[in-house]
Design a protein around this nucleic acid. Structure first.
Length: 263
DNA sequence: AAGTATGCCAACCGCAGCGAT
DNA sequence: TATCGCTGCGGTTGGCATACT
């Protein structure tokens, strides 16, 4: 058996937060800042565990949170980012200002996954191209109202054209990049130290695909587009690594390094 | 109108990375 | 170098809301 749940201590509350608890947490964090989640509940007068407090703050109370109504553009970006990054919800959330990883994860699991699946899109991310347990247990499916809702949400969108993607191994993300600071606001720089204006992530992804698995030597243009940020070794192999999962992993890792740890 | 099925989402759980010692 | 504790992340669950029969 694993360790005891963090909220198992006698006297700690679980479940939905009350307005009073929200107020206590908000006041404390705004006064003393985020962090020290372990000791925060006691100091703030909350009968919650630190993890619960952090989650509540990050997903609900934090300033700038945008709730509901995921736009078509946001959805498109989520799909594209997921194709590149897999289930790294915090990274994806970092590209969507005001959105939380939890919200995006929920949206993916309740809307996009089903839609992509019904469109015949196979996603290799973590081998998890089937719906979550909720859908597994409740899956009888495809009620008319469900379809209507989905149609209302995102109309007339072209099916996502999927190229098979081999996802990189999991990568931890620095807090500076994740959640609070999106990539857009992180002041990215090139390895030489000069500021760089990155193109949208999905354009980079497309360029990587072109370089790696595109038809007929698009590698040069792709490399130009990417600004030569990938190592010469990788670029020199661009013509021969079609469908090479290991090399794709390397490219993704390099890209993610550039993305997450600007010098 | 009542019962059932399904969708949605807030919150919990456990694992793993990372820094401190 | 090894260990420990804290934190963040992704997977999963539980319960309410809504649609359907």
């Amino acid at each position: 058996m694993g360790r005891a749940p963090c909220c198992s201590k006698v006297g700690l509350s679980k479940g939905p937060w009350s307005p009073e608890e929200d107020s206590l947490l908000s006041d404390y964090v705004q006064k003393y800042g985020e962090g020290q989640w372990r000791s925060l509940p006691k100091k703030a007068g909350l009968l919650r565990c630190g993890k619960s407090c952090r989650l509540r703050w990050m997903n609900y109370l934090r300033p700038g949170i945008v709730r509901g109504n995921i736009t078509a553009d946001e959805e498109d970006l989520i799909v594209r980012l997921h194709a590149l990054l897999g289930n790294r919800w915090s990274l994806i959330a970092g590209r969507l200002p005001g959105r939380t990883d939890n919200e995006i994860k929920n949206y993916w699991n309740t809307h996009l996954l089903r839609k992509l699946h019904s469109a015949g899109v196979v996603h290799p991310a973590g081998g998890r191209d089937l719906p979550r347990s909720d859908n597994l247990t409740k899956q009888k499916k495809s009620k008319s109202h469900t379809k209507k809702k989905e149609d209302d949400g995102v109309k007339n969108r072209a099916p996502f054209q999927k190229t098979r993607v081999y996802l990189p191994k999991p990568l931890r993300v620095s807090p500076e990049f994740s959640r609070t600071n999106s990539f857009d606001s992180s002041g990215s720089r090139t390895s030489s130290g000069s500021p760089v204006e990155w193109p949208p992530l999905f354009e980079i992804k497309d360029a990587v695909y072109e370089m790696l698995i595109g038809d007929g030597g698009g590698g040069g243009a792709a490399a130009d587009f990417l600004g030569g940020e990938f190592s010469p070794e990788l670029l020199s192999h661009a013509d021969s690594i079609s469908d090479n999962a290991e090399m794709l992993d390397k490219v993704y890792d390099e890209y993610l390094q550039l993305l997450q740890f600007p010098e």
